[in-house]
Design a protein around this nucleic acid. Structure first.
Length: 801
RNA sequence: GCGGGUGUGGCGGAAUGGCAGACGCGUCAGAUUUAGGAUCUGAUGUUAAUUCGUGCAGGUUCAAGUCCUGUCACCCGCACCA
């Protein structure tokens, strides 16, 4: 027996694939295409995590299988290399970020190649390459020209340690996602992208794509569309206060109003408000609260009543008090609500604190005990012309009434906010606009792209919150492209998520210098047929890239409405202790070590065998051995190979079944059961003691997508040629079934015996056979026969009394 | 609080309403080996029991891990969104 030297074999085939460009993807419209995509990694100094190969191996399996099925396959990889960790490393070690990035990319590339992924290495993209971010900047300019990128003074999340603005998505539990320091609010002028203009389409078009359901649900909830009404309340100050509500049906129960502490009317009404100082003090206290305090501590309702101005409920003309409270957010709806304590939990809590009247307008609960918020069962009461209606009917009637009186309108609102798109950092794409004292913000001409990131003496952010670029006079000072007078460049850079919002397009045509990609290449390769990635990007990268893609579709740059036809998500690989893998826990597994000790094929097989692909799974060093043994036993098959080139009679149906099982399971990301099926077959082969040539060839092809090196080697050695030039196996449904099977015989649902029957035997014959079993005879002896059931090929159940 | 997910042997996990525990790890026994490791063979939910067993309590069914009602626990996300 030849020894299975995985180190030598894996190196040999990796070199072969690279030098022969085996997996090169060429645009060829005469062939049917397949585009599989994995999230390109951030090339950190730590190197590849064992989580990466879970996703990458799965899509590598699909890609390799598609090639065997005759598809022209695009399976690219690249590097999402802008971002804070590299910049922080640069600051600490005084090494230029570009140098660190190049070094990290080399390491990541080496690691990916050492696992044997069939990536298209001639299509690598790198978001920090000026030829790449040229087009990131170009897309920004198109958005700017279409009014989707705009500058706005706004309260932003400010990390006190990183000294940088964070997106809402980067704030976790009121702390910086990266450094875990406190996040406070700070007013700064920021670039914004108008993702909210696409909110409806980002929800509605989910119906057209094949994403796993939990991704769709998460995106829908994040966008948070709600249907309601805006209602105008007159005030004793003369101004109209507009509120947004999803429950206009409860208008008769509105006994007070709450406006956000930042609501502009407070200052407008300053001279009418006798307690303006109290109101201002409350507002200032609310602003000083960190995100942490606002969300975690003290959920008890607080507020201050406006003394001197009241609102008038439009349905009954009653004067009602107005409060300010930080439970009403200035950023959502109109920053003002009508409070219906009988039917809203928060309003009920507030009313209890300030002893405000609670009116029941929907019957069904006990509003003296808690708010009754159920919309489905209640009937309207104490509501004049709405009395007796259901909630749904009342919503329709009140809206009609409000519209006819000119007091309100239907309104749809979203939780989604526009995207804060500037960062006060060095290591990101420069924003290609200049500020001119005459013309305001002016776009750079496209001919001046890419606007290159200059070398700076220091990467340290400044204490006043400006980017390090702000210290570089030679970069800042320029001329206005419009009027030619002196102007200053924008010194903020784009966030981490910019480059990844369109990278899948660049893969189609990665070296194009005229456009982000040629129309021809995009029309051929797009959309992505299958995209797998982490759940953690559902409301970040995945949503952002759908937004950018829709914009590019609107301006005619791409011809599909959605970028990804299908999206799946893998579960996280946890440490051996069941917790998240992290340096601080000391439970990190380095893929390099596994490859050294067990080989790349074993790593791939183990990561696929570890459990349900979509569920989190704890790492286990001892379980890896089982996968290594499996491959060792595959290696040993040639020693028991016969010269016969057909399926053997006793394994024929087992092989057909396994081909079917593996083919189906791989498509459904059930690699664990596909591998189990091959292990079962292998056990049968060994207990039989021999395998035919055809059987071995079949098994190698089935295993090839999962363990490509060992299967290439065996195939090449035994059959000659290359397994990657083979064709995926087919099966015959009829041959998947054995002629005879063993089924259980139950009496009253309890198994009493097992009988072997012919697969095609009819019910009478099977029942007759069942009744010859001694255990069955004993169990039905002296009892009355109630019912006899035979489910073809499955089970016999005899019911007796 | 809201949304999503998960509860099955010592462990990871399998089961179109039809023999629960496939497959693998671990463990035990045997073979081989100077020994260890590796490998091979067999056993391995539980019970005195063909007894009981899929978080818990009910229900539907000839038949429930799977369907229905209620309930508990854990994990992940969001978090005063009117």
């Amino acid at each position: 027996m030849q020894t299975y030297d995985y180190k030598e074999i894996e190196k040999k085939w990796q070199d072969h694939w690279l030098t022969h460009k085996t997996f090169k993807a060429v645009t060829d419209t005469s062939k049917k295409k397949w585009y599989s995509l994995v999230e390109f990694p951030y090339p950190s100094g730590e190197g590849l995590h064992v989580g990466h190969p879970r996703s990458y191996t799965a899509m590598d399996i699909i890609s390799r299988k598609r090639r065997l099925q005759g598809y022209n396959v695009l399976f690219p990889i690249g590097w999402d290399a802008f971002g804070l960790p590299t910049e922080n490393f640069a600051i600490k070690h005084k090494i230029p970020p570009a140098e660190i990035t190049a070094r990290n990319i080399d390491n990541f590339r080496r690691q990916c190649q050492s696992i044997g992924f069939s990536f298209n290495w001639d299509r690598e993209v790198n978001t920090t390459d000026p030829d790449y971010y040229h087009w990131t900047q170009w897309i920004f300019l198109q958005m700017f020209k279409h009014g989707l990128a705009y500058k706005k003074e706004m309260s932003v999340n400010w990390c006190t340690d990183c000294k940088v603005v964070l997106a809402n998505e980067e704030v976790v539990d009121g702390k910086c996602e990266r450094c875990h320091h406190d996040v406070i609010h700070k007013v700064k002028s920021q670039w914004m992208l108008g993702i909210t203009k696409y909110a409806d389409r980002l929800i509605d078009d989910l119906d057209e794509v094949d994403y796993i359901e939990r991704i769709k649900i998460t995106q829908k909830n994040w966008i948070g569309r709600s249907y309601g009404a805006e209602v105008d309340f007159e005030s004793t100050a003369g101004d109209t206060l507009t509120v947004y509500t999803t429950r206009p049906d409860t208008l008769f129960g509105a006994t007070y109003m709450v406006i956000s502490p930042e609501h502009p009317y407070i200052e407008k009404w300053a001279d009418k408000l006798t307690n303006i100082e109290d109101l201002r003090a409350y507002r200032e206290a609310a602003a000083k609260k960190s995100e942490m305090e606002r969300t975690q501590l003290n959920k008890d309702k607080t507020g201050v009543k406006l003394e001197g101005v009241q609102a008038i409920n439009p349905v009954n003309g009653k004067n009602i008090p107005i409060f300010i409270s930080d439970y009403v957010l200035i950023s959502y709806g109109t920053g003002a609500i009508m409070a219906v304590p009988g039917h809203d939990t928060r309003d009920w809590e507030f009313a209890k604190v300030y002893d405000l009247p609670i009116i029941e307008v929907v019957k069904g609960g006990d509003v003296t005990q808690e708010a009754f918020t159920d919309c489905n069962t209640g009937i309207m009461i104490n509501s004049d012309f709405l009395n007796g209606l259901t909630v749904d009917e009342a919503k329709v009637e009140i809206k009609k009434w409000l519209i006819s009186k000119g007091l309100g309108k239907e309104k749809v609102n979203f939780k989604l906010r526009d995207w804060v798109f500037s960062r006060q950092r060095y290591w990101g794409e420069p924003i290609p606009v200049v500020n001119c004292s005459h013309c305001g913000w002016v776009a750079l001409p496209e001919s001046e792209l890419p606007l290159k990131l200059p070398d700076v003496p220091s990467y340290m952010p400044t204490d006043n919150g400006e980017s390090p670029l702000a210290l570089m006079e030679s970069f800042i000072n320029t001329k206005c492209p419009k009027c030619g007078s002196a102007a200053r460049r924008e010194t903020d850079t784009m966030p981490q998520w910019a480059g990844s919002s369109w990278y899948y397009l660049r893969y189609c045509d990665p070296t194009n210098s005229e456009a982000l990609a040629s129309k021809e290449a995009l029309d051929y390769w797009m959309p992505v047929d299958w995209y797998n990635g982490g759940m953690e990007h559902t409301t970040l990268h995945l949503l952002y890239s759908r937004f950018w893609h829709k914009f590019l579709y609107d301006i005619g740059a791409v011809s599909t409405k959605e970028p990804y036809k299908k999206r799946t998500a893998h579960g996280m690989i946890l440490g051996e202790d069941g917790g998240k893998m992290s340096k601080s826990r000391g439970n990190v597994v380095n893929p390099d070590d596994i490859i050294r000790d067990y080989g790349a094929d074993t790593l791939r097989t183990y990561e696929m065998f570890i459990g349900d692909f979509e569920q989190p799974a704890p790492w286990s060093m001892s379980s890896i051995k089982g996968c290594k043994r499996f491959l060792d036993r595959i290696w040993g098959l040639r020693d028991i190979m016969t010269t016969d080139n057909d399926y053997s009679d006793d394994l024929k149906s087992a092989f057909h079944r396994t081909i079917k099982k593996v083919s189906d399971d791989l498509e459904n990301l059930k690699m664990n059961t596909a591998i189990a099926a091959m292990m079962t077959l292998l056990n049968e082969i060994y207990s039989k003691g021999s395998i035919t040539k055809l059987e071995l060839k079949t098994l190698l092809i089935l295993l090839n997508p999962i363990a490509p090196h060992i299967t290439e080697e065996l195939y090449n050695d035994i059959f000659g040629g290359f397994i990657h030039e083979e064709t995926w196996c087919t099966y015959d449904e009829k041959l998947c079934i054995d002629d005879t099977i063993e089924i259980a015989v139950q009496i009253n649902g309890k198994v009493k015996a097992k009988i072997t029957i012919g697969t095609d035997d009819d019910e009478a014959a099977v029942l007759a056979a069942a009744k010859t079993e001694t255990a069955v005879i004993a169990a039905i002896d002296g009892k009355t026969l109630v019912k006899e059931i035979y489910v073809k090929g499955r089970i016999v159940n005899i019911v007796v009394r």
